[in-house]
């Protein structure tokens, strides 16, 4: 997958995707024929009202949910036919996740949280620790390596989460309202950090947000409404 990855310049290709949730006898059409292309190195903001299916679309692209019909190709891999296990493996290599509520593991300290995705690689303990420390340094929290999530502010937690997202050097970063739980100042820091990863490390970023200021940081903005995408 990483070889195809270098050949194509398309990082994400969503083709005619429909997503229907079945609740008892009721069918909820969340996405209705979505088409989306994201080139490598782009920073894309997905906007739209609450309940419009932003998270659902992001989940499909990140390989943690499945389309009802259509096709999702990310980092050169068609996700549609993959099994759960194959998807898990694929995620661990290609996607970095940033959540609204950080989702750090409370019993692990900052550096252990950052190290977590590396546990699935064949790296040695020392190599893992070194990489995790490097990632923490990039987000400016090297001195907080031994702090536990509850000892960190929201903004710091989110920076640790970003370090965790980038530590495996994934192709695509997905962020679902990464500033949704933060004050203005922290949000600004997080957005700057994401910009840095996009510009300096050429990470493709897909960010869901309904904060116009956040969306302004992205180079491309898409609007999702009633299951249909518009620019």
């Amino acid at each position: 997958m990483s070889t195809t990855n270098t050949v194509t310049t398309t990082a994400v290709s969503v083709q005619n995707v429909r997503k229907v949730y079945q609740r008892d006898s009721i069918q909820i059409k969340v996405l209705d024929g979505i088409n989306l292309e994201v080139q490598q190195g782009e920073f894309v903001a997905l906007m739209g009202p609450s309940g419009s299916g932003k998270t659902t679309l992001l989940n499909l692209i990140a390989g943690i949910d499945r389309v009802t019909s259509g096709k999702v190709v990310v980092a050169g891999t068609d996700l549609t036919p993959l099994s759960e296990g194959e998807l898990a493996k694929w995620r661990s290599r290609n996607i970095g996740f940033i959540f609204q509520f950080y989702n750090l593991i409370p019993v692990l300290n900052a550096v252990e949280n950052v190290e977590l995705p590396l546990l699935l690689t064949p790296l040695s303990g020392r190599e893992r620790r070194e990489r995790a420390m490097t990632a923490l340094r990039i987000v400016g929290l090297e001195d907080r390596a031994k702090h536990y999530p509850r000892q960190l502010s929201g903004g710091q937690e989110q920076r640790v989460a970003i370090a965790r997202a980038v530590v495996t050097d994934p192709t695509v970063l997905v962020a679902d309202e990464p500033t949704g739980d933060l004050d203005h100042q922290s949000a600004e820091e997080i957005l700057t950090l994401m910009e840095t990863f996009n510009k300096e490390f050429h990470k493709t970023i897909l960010m869901v947000t309904h904060d116009p200021r956040a969306a302004a940081k992205a180079r491309i903005q898409h609007h999702l409404d009633k299951g249909v995408l518009s620019n």
């Binding site: 943690i64 898990a88 989702n103 977590l116 995705p117």
Partner: peptide, 14 residues
């Protein structure tokens, strides 16, 4: 639950 979800998201096999 949250941790289990995170681990799986990060690619930990079930």
């Amino acid at each position: 639950q949250q941790e289990i979800g995170v681990l799986k998201t990060l690619g930990f096999p079930s």
